[in-house]
């Protein structure tokens, strides 16, 4: 039996577009319950509705909480800062934070491209980050 590598590269999984220089995450909005989901879904995980509307999240949000991860699994370079960002579209998304010190809770952040903490083939992977 061959084990299939189930983890796709993050840049394919963190679904985003760059529009007028702004990084915007793709998400789904349920026309029935109004729930917003990121990454996008084909079926609403709250009420089972389908299809869902494709939307783009704002390129800024608010830091709900943060941590500095100092011990992780081997594919990540430690330490690194993670934040949960609350978007105006009423959805919370986990993101790496691009900065030396963690941002205070309640900080306004922009969504930008950044590198790491995941490392593939010796190179930090480029994915959307939050930045003050």
């Amino acid at each position: 039996m061959t084990k299939v590598d189930e983890a796709e590269a993050p840049e394919k999984v963190v679904n985003y577009v760059i529009e007028d220089g702004k990084v915007r995450l793709r998400a789904s909005k349920c026309p029935t319950c109004g729930g917003v989901f990121q990454p996008p879904r084909s079926i609403c995980p709250a009420d089972g509705s389908s299809p869902l509307d494709d939307i783009l999240l704002a390129s800024e949000g608010t830091v709900y909480t943060f941590t500095v991860v100092r011990q992780s699994t081997p594919e990540f370079k430690t330490p690194y800062i993670l934040v949960y960002v609350d978007f105006p579209e009423q959805v919370r998304v986990l993101m790496p934070y691009d900065g030396e010190e963690p941002p205070p809770i309640g900080s306004q952040v922009d969504i930008v491209m950044g590198s790491g903490p995941r490392v593939e083939n010796g190179e930090p992977v480029s994915i959307p980050h939050a930045r003050l």
């Binding site: 189930e6 983890a7 796709e8 993050p10 999984v13 963190v14 990454p39 709900y64 909480t65 943060f66 941590t67 991860v69 011990q71 992780s72 699994t73 990540f76 690194y80 993670l82 949960y84 986990l94 993101m95 790496p96 809770i105 903490p117 995941r118 994915i127």
Partner: peptide, 23 residues
């Protein structure tokens, strides 16, 4: 589980609870 996008971004179990502790 590594199939979760959050795990691919770098979320660990201590990380989740640390973020809840900060709040």
């Amino acid at each position: 589980d590594p199939s979760d996008v959050e795990a691919q971004i770098g979320l660990t179990m201590p990380g989740i609870y640390a973020m809840r502790a900060q709040r």
